[in-house]
Design a protein around this nucleic acid. Sequence first.
DNA 1: TCTGGGGTCCTAGGACCC
DNA 2: TCTGGGGTCCTAGGACCC
Length: 439
Amino acid sequence: MFALVDCNNFYASCERVFRPELEGRPVVVLSNNDGCIIARSNEAKALGLKMGDPYFQVRELLRQHDVAVCSSNYELYGDMSRRVMWYLGQVAPELEVYSIDEAFLNLSGMTRYLGDLTEYGARVRADVLQRTGIPVCVGMAPTKTLAKLANRVAKAASKAATPALSGSGVLCLDTDDKRQDALARVGVEDVWGVGHQYATKLYAAGYRTAADLAACPLPWARKNLGGVVGMRLVRELQGYPCLSMEPSEGGGAVRKSIACTRSFGKPVTAFEDVMGAVATFVSRAAEKLRRQGSAARVLTVFVSTNRFGNEPPPFTRSALVTLSVATDDTLELAAQARLMLGKVWRPGTLYKKAGVMLDGLERVGEQQLGLFEQPAAVSGKRMELMGTLDALNRQYGKGAVMVGSASVRKGVGAAWEMNREQKSPAYTTSWGELWRVWV
DNA sequence: TCTGGGGTCCTAGGACCC
DNA sequence: TCTGGGGTCCTAGGACCC
């Protein structure tokens, strides 16, 4: 048996934990740059607000309904997530942190000790709420895909308008009847692994519900739903596990690629300004790289113009370099990034976005050396320097020490800085921003 | 004025190997 | 007229996830 624990309206719930007066009031959380809506409380959903709605388009509606608007605060959400995940790690033998707000638990071999699974789920739910203030739903089933589906049904039931009909936020599909019943309640477009393209295809072929999809012939699934992926999907819905746990120890999964990309608060034209952004992104990406003990062989830099503009037509240009030896050295990556930016640079362009990506990751200390590289290429001194850099930034705050090209004049924000007009404090991760309680 | 960011896996096709 | 069989590696692109 697998359980999927999913936080309800996670970012909105995080904001509410520290602003209880928002309880009952619609809340939305905006993406970076206050661009669009990425999280909504139930009340906000009820107003018809959609995921991805551009903020400037719904601003008036939000005002009319007195919706609380929050800029995204990933430090806060990340920290709240760690608390939830830490607890979940205590109540199951195996934990897979699937995303910032969801985790799979492997309950195999445990069911006889856990007793009634619905009760177990209810206990997990109550404990997470008590310990972190975050409401969650729990879905349990013999496959991961069915656990996701169970969670979805549980969530829908817990929102039902009539309290008498509202479920407990927990659903366990431990019999074939329950499985069939749940499958029939979920639209095929809401199945985990069915996106927009597949949903269209499925509808055209007459598949409407998850139950229809579960009865789909495997060759059809193979042909139309991405090959082996589609077959697994159907089998999982039938109750045959095809996806296994990918347990996350400690800090979570080791990434195979690492990116840092941002839209700018306003268009930027000066090379050194964009370079400042790129240097900052390289630094952050390299920090992530070192945190997971990896080194990168491939560095990509890209710049884009406003993708919603028409004139001149929007474009993205990117350049990549393959290093002879993988590195986690910010300075080396930043120097390469400058060269890459030079390659794609077109003077006089209004840039709206830039980013860097690191690929071809290898474990530090196990990097493949080039034919003509001395082992000393992986320099001990530089590693020490990077260790010091990370330690300083941990102790004195992000950006305490940075590469020169990322720096800006004191008191003047970077030209590319994002807009975040309504950011909440880092209540749990910054001494200067602790939650204040008046007694 | 204003439209996010960061990942994964799979397939197909080309280049190349013996 | 005839012109094999079996691989690997890499990349680009497409689909999906949150």
